[in-house]
Design a protein around this nucleic acid. Structure first.
Lengths: 192, 192
DNA sequence: TCCCTTGTCTAGCGGTGCTAGGATCCAGTC
DNA sequence: GACTGGATCCTAGCACCGCTAGACAAGGGA
């Protein structure tokens, strides 16, 4: 029995290594550089080993996305907990969100741009994704305004943040006035 | 001279054919299906011919993006021209934008998600891109509110629309309440 | 000690973007 | 009208991609 357990442990470790290495490589050189060959080389195993853990590259991206969602939820809650008053909380939330996207572009892409084979906004949505959405909702529910469905408000606010994050990083928006755009968004969208 | 002119004309025609075919193929089967081999086959030329018109696949995407930007500008102006009053104009603008994104997903991707090698928000930004932004600005300038820079307001509003468009299509947002989200965005962001 | 499962690797398939180099065609010249 | 040189296009191939079949070795259980 102990032998089996050890093997399982080692397998789980290797799986974590794969995900961590894929993430690292993606952050360093972009997801295009995350090829199965390079990834295999970095973890010092042959290519087919990857396929004994994941169905394919898509699932690896999905695993990175889940890891990122959990981290984002923590980051958002930490930021809002340190702020006083609804206005400050929403602003802190927005900044924390965009900060996360900027600091972890590859993880952010895995979560919201790439196909990681994950189901969103459904019954069978993985827990970390639901929880990240909850982290947004918890703060936004108090500024949604009367008669506005909190979930719908959260979706809309989130979409606005997502637009800022992606357009800025794709160089469609100049990076200079990000802070002003955040202020505008918070002041207009949130009912205080 | 006439022979040269005819050749130039034929060359220009072929270039248009390449762009149109790439766009068609992308809308039918997604950009992943737009390979240089398939594209070459469809235009009934060999692969290298593509490279005598464009530096590579990236430039073809860029060409599709420019074509799309011009069409979007027309669509946005047509929608706002038919609406009475600032509120109706902004709502029509938002709907027209999202409608364009939904009807032309591949073109939309070429414009705002993929790398088409185009420069945005700069001096040397191609005219169609500047003009599409102008089409947004023309309507939004009247609802930016006092003391708010119209360009900055347009960028923020655009980002919100972009977020809705991309998250909905990437199945991160359920498609049901799109109209409600638009209403919310217009009512809150625009100063009437 | 032998067997058989489990785990891993080598090698290879069909695909990708892109390009070197040779063949062909045709306008302009004698 | 024959010749020639340049423009034009294609065949073939490079290095890479995601993914997998099948050979092989290692090691626990009988």
């Amino acid at each position: 029995m102990s032998v089996q357990e050890r093997k399982q442990r080692e397998r789980a470790n290797r799986e974590r290594l794969i995900v961590a290495t894929a993430r690292e490589l993606a952050e360093q050189q972009g997801w295009d550089a995350v090829t199965t060959r390079r990834l295999a080389e970095r973890i010092e195993y042959s290519q087919p080993v990857l396929y004994s853990h994941f169905r394919g590259k898509r699932e690896i991206i999905g695993a990175v996305a889940l890891e990122g969602a959990a981290e984002m939820a923590v980051a958002l809650r930490a930021a809002t907990a340190a702020a006083d008053g609804p206005r400050a909380r929403v602003a802190a939330l927005a900044r924390a969100y965009l900060d996360f996207a900027e600091r972890n572009p590859a993880v952010y892409d895995a979560m919201f741009q790439l196909d990681g084979g994950l189901a969103f906004a459904r019954e069978d949505t993985p827990e970390p994704l639901k929880d990240a959405f909850s982290a947004l909702l918890e703060t936004l529910v108090e500024v949604a305004g009367d008669g506005v469905h909190p979930g719908l408000f959260t979706e809309t606010f989130w979409a606005a943040l997502h637009g800022l994050a992606t357009l800025t990083r794709a160089r469609r928006l100049p990076p200079e006035h990000t802070e002003h755009r955040i202020e505008l968004l918070v002041d207009r969208l949130a009912v205080l």
